[in-house]
Nucleic acid binder design. Structure first.
Lengths: 202, 202
DNA sequence: CATAACTGGCTGGCTGGCCAGCATGGATCG
DNA sequence: CGATCCATGCTGGCCAGCCAGCCAGTTATG
C-alpha cells in the first residue's frame, strides 16, 4: 500500500462514512460531528473512521474533495444547456433559489469549511481548490459562450465567474440567516445586477 | 439586581471580556475559544466569565450584540457622506476592499455566528438582528437619498440594501478564502454590477 | 493459514460549569 | 475614632462528562 490515506477509499464503507460526515457537518457543525455519531450514521464502527482516514482532519479534507467534485460536475452539466444571456441569468437565479430552498446543507458545509480554513492549511487549500475549480468550470463555459458569439462581457471569464459565485454565496447566506428578507425580491434585484454584467454580442 | 445577565456589563472587565472573546472567536473559532484562553487574554480569572455571563452561549450573544451596534453605527456614519450615485458605488467598493484587507476579523466573526445560528436560536436571532439592523440602516439612507432626488432605483430600499450586503459578504468570503482571486479585478466587476442597480434620478 | 478488514473498550487530556472562599471598601456600632 | 461586619466583585481549584486517538483482538477473505 503506497499511502495509508488511500486505503481503498472508493469502497462502500468509506463512501458511506464520507457521506455521513458531510451530512453531519452541515447539520451539527464540525465540533458536533463526533466519531461516535458519524460512525453510527454510516453504519460502521468508530474504529473504522480511524482505520480509513487516520484523523478527523483528514476525513474533513476528504469531505471537501468529494463535494468539490460533485459540485463542479453538477454545475458544468447545467451550464452546458445555457446558450444565451437570458439563459444565463435565469440559470443563475434558479440555481440560487434552488440552493436556498432545497439544499441549504451545501451552503452550511461551505460555511464550516471556510471557518476551518482559517486554522487548517490542508482544509484551506482543499476549500480554496473547491471554489476555485467551480469558478474555473464556470469561467470555461463563459469563455466558450463568448467565443461562440452567444454572449459578451468585459474582463476575464474567471473574474466574472468568481464574482458571480461570490454573489451566490453571499446572498444564500443572507437569505438563509435572515428569514425576514424576501427571497423573490432579493433574487430579482440580484438578477438585474447580473444581467448588467453580460450583454448580447455586438 | 433585576436580571443576573445584566450584571453591570458596562464595567471595565466585562468590556474587556467581550472584546477578548470577539478577537478570539475570529482567530480561533468558537470551539477554540476556551474560557481559559479568553480569560487570560482579557486579564481576568476564568470564573469571572461565568460570573458575568453565566455561560459561553450568553457570552457569544453579547459579542454579537456588541458587534451589531458598532457595525451599524460605523456604517451609518460613512454612508451619511454619500450624496450621489458615484459616491455610493465608490463607498461600496472601498468598504469591501477595506474589510478584506484591514478587518477580516469581522467577516470571520460573522462566519462563526452564522454557523452557530444553525444550532442556537438565541444566537440566530441576534445574528439575524445584526444583519437586519445593518441592512435597515443602509436602507434608510438609500430611501432618504431617493426622496431627496439624488439617486434613483427600483423596488424597496431594504431589498436593495439586503442585496448589497449579501454581495459584500459573499465577495469578502470569496476573496479571503481564495488567494488566487484578484481583489481589484473582482471588485471592479462587482462595482459595475452595483452601478446598474442605482441610477441618476430622471 | 495468512493477511487484510474491522471492532469497540480504554485512556489521557481538555472543557464548561460549579462553588467555597478571599479581598476590598463602605456602613454600622461601641 | 477604631473595631466589626457585611455585600459584592472576583478568584482558581475541582469535577463530571466528553472526545479523538490508540490498540489488542476478532472476523472475513482468498
Amino acid at each position: 500500500m503506497a499511502n495509508e490515506t488511500q486505503r481503498e477509499l472508493a469502497g462502500d464503507k468509506a463512501v458511506r462514512i464520507v457521506d455521513a460526515m458531510r451530512t453531519s457537518v452541515a447539520r451539527r457543525g464540525v465540533a458536533g460531528s463526533t466519531f461516535d455519531h458519524v460512525a453510527r450514521e454510516a453504519g460502521v464502527s468508530r474504529g473504522l473512521l480511524h482505520y480509513y482516514f487516520g484523523s478527523k482532519e483528514r476525513l474533513l479534507v476528504e469531505v471537501a474533495k468529494h463535494d468539490s467534485r460533485v459540485r463542479a460536475t453538477a454545475m458544468a452539466e447545467r451550464l452546458s444547456e445555457v446558450g444565451s444571456v437570458d439563459d444565463l441569468v435565469s440559470w443563475w437565479t434558479r440555481s440560487l433559489r434552488a440552493t436556498v430552498r432545497h439544499e441549504p446543507e451545501f451552503v452550511l458545509l461551505l460555511l464550516e469549511l471556510f471557518s476551518l480554513s482559517q486554522r487548517n492549511p490542508d482544509i484551506a487549500s482543499e476549500t480554496s481548490g473547491m471554489t476555485g475549480r467551480t469558478a474555473a468550470a464556470m469561467g470555461a463555459r463563459l469563455a466558450r459562450l463568448r467565443d461562440e458569439g452567444r454572449i459578451d462581457f468585459d474582463g476575464e471569464p474567471d473574474t466574472l465567474a468568481t464574482t458571480l459565485l461570490g454573489f451566490t454565496h453571499g446572498l444564500a447566506l443572507q437569505l438563509l440567516s435572515n428569514s425576514e428578507a424576501s427571497l423573490t425580491a432579493v433574487t430579482e434585484t440580484a438578477s438585474a445586477a447580473i444581467r448588467s454584467l453580460v450583454r448580447e454580442p455586438a
